[in-house]
């Protein structure tokens, strides 16, 4: 195929996103394009605006300025359920399972409500079948009646992933899926993310404030600091960037000492 025919599809495009809380700028002038099939890492110290950016993309927060486009359509200010229906799913940094529902029922919600209008109507049975499929996919081992409060920290993060996947997204916003996990669990969770991209063909934006595991998996990294993009590029380039080291690794070292 001649190169001119290879089209790169821009899946998500952020243009000049700003978000102010009172006088405080949580995000200022964020512009970013994410290609279909990309595995993008978004890093930055605590409070740098990573989760705020996710909230803006997923519709939980309305940006004070700027535009969010998904698959060419303007989705700025749409309700979260609408954005979910379009194919954007997210996990929460602090897991938010519905505690009165079983783990399976939690994931079923995603299957029942997540993709209305895009694929076939889900009956309870197919939703349950799908839920179990995604629970297996993320490597969560639960019984039919397991409640969320019986899960470990790693289990809760897997539940977040399974519930998000059940909405059959084309773009996954993964918010700190490995923070608080031990080394073994980190490897497992990272490989799940990798499989979500490779086997399911889901584009992923992965937010993490620890650099380690993320840097070895993603293709491109965007670094946020004080609500601004301070660096962008291949992991190897970014980790050597002076500004990143100052803003980011500098703080990490301070934390160590």
């Amino acid at each position: 195929m001649p190169p001119s025919l290879i089209q790169v599809l821009i899946m998500l495009s952020l243009d000049g996103i700003g978000k102010f809380f009172g006088g405080l700028a949580a995000l200022s002038d964020i512009s970013l394009k994410v290609e279909e099939g990309e595995f993008l890492g978004l890093i930055g110290p605590n409070g740098s605006g990573k989760t705020t950016l996710f909230n803006v993309i997923s519709g939980v927060l309305k940006p004070s300025s700027g535009r969010v486009s998904f698959m060419g359509a303007d989705i700025t200010g749409l309700y979260p359920d609408k954005i979910c229906h379009l194919g954007v799913a997210r996990t929460f940094q602090i897991p938010r399972p519905l505690k009165d529902l079983t783990v399976v029922e939690n994931v079923m919600l995603g299957a029942l409500f997540g993709d209305s209008g895009r694929s076939t109507y889900h009956s309870e049975e197919t939703a349950k079948r799908d839920a179990i499929k995604y629970i297996d996919f993320v490597g969560l081992k639960v019984g039919e009646l397991t409640m969320p409060d019986e899960l470990t920290a790693a289990g809760l993060r897997k539940l977040e992933l399974a519930r998000a996947l059940a909405t059959s997204p084309t773009l996954l916003l993964a918010d700190e899926v490995i923070s608080g996990l031990n080394q073994e669990e980190i490897l497992e969770a990272s490989s799940v993310l990798n499989r979500i991209r490779d086997e399911m063909g889901v584009t992923i934006i992965w937010v993490e404030h620890i650099m380690g595991a993320l840097m070895s998996l993603v293709e491109r990294v965007v670094v946020l600091d004080y609500g601004k993009i301070i660096a962008e590029g291949k992991p190897s380039e970014v980790s050597g960037d002076k500004r990143v080291v100052e803003a980011y690794l500098g703080e990490e070292e301070q934390e160590v000492y």
Partner: peptide, 17 residues
């Protein structure tokens, strides 16, 4: 039921609140 427990989580899985 989901809305009653957590509106943000409910809307994130596509439930129209």
């Amino acid at each position: 039921k989901a809305i009653g427990e957590d509106e943000v989580a409910a809307s994130s899985v596509g439930i129209n609140i």
